[in-house]
Amino acid sequence: MLELQLELEHIDQHALNNMSEERLKHYNTILREQVRELDQEILNVESSFRYAYGIDPFESVSPDGVLQNLAVDLKELRLNVRTLEQDLAAFEDIKNLKLWLKRCKVVSAPSDFEFMPF
């Protein structure tokens, strides 16, 4: 960062060698502040990314880890799409749809042991 700062101010090595101690301290102070700002920006971007993609705040984030999670998510989504396509094809026959709805009704029916308010 110091090199960039020096480039921006067109300071060459000769000028750097002759720079006063006070001036170097000033540059170091500026650079420390820039590092703090960049660290905070990284934390903000990382937090937003974690929140957007449901990543645990304490889990480390790396490109490889994110790509692995993405691969798992894609595999699950493809499986869900296949299942939905199969269901859609099966429900084209109204008899299959009625049978499925009856099964759902039986599964969701309250049992004799469930509390039923009067």
Rank of each mutant, 00 (worst) to 15 (best):
A71P: 09
L67W: 03
P63M: 02
D73T: 14
L88C: 14
A71M: 15
V66F: 06
V66W: 03
V72S: 06
L77H: 15
G54Q: 01
E59R: 00
V81Q: 09
D73K: 11
N44Q: 04
A89Q: 07
E46T: 09
L74A: 15
A89C: 12
L43G: 05
R78F: 12
D39V: 11
D56V: 01
L74W: 10
V81C: 12
V61M: 02
K75M: 09
E46F: 05
L77I: 14
S47H: 09
N69T: 12
L43P: 05
F58M: 10
T83Y: 09
S47L: 07
S62L: 00
R82P: 07
E46M: 11
F58Q: 15
F49A: 00
V45M: 03
E76V: 09
Y51N: 07
N69A: 07
I42E: 00
E46D: 05
D87W: 08
S60M: 05
N80V: 08
K75V: 15
N80Q: 11
F58A: 10
P57V: 04
G54M: 00
D87M: 07
V72Q: 05
P57E: 03
A52N: 03
L88E: 11
A90N: 06
I42A: 01
L88N: 14
L79V: 13
L77E: 10
F58R: 06
P63R: 01
F49H: 00
V66M: 10
S47F: 12
G54A: 01
N69F: 08
A71C: 14
D64I: 05
R78I: 10
E41Y: 06
E85M: 15
E85I: 09
D64M: 07
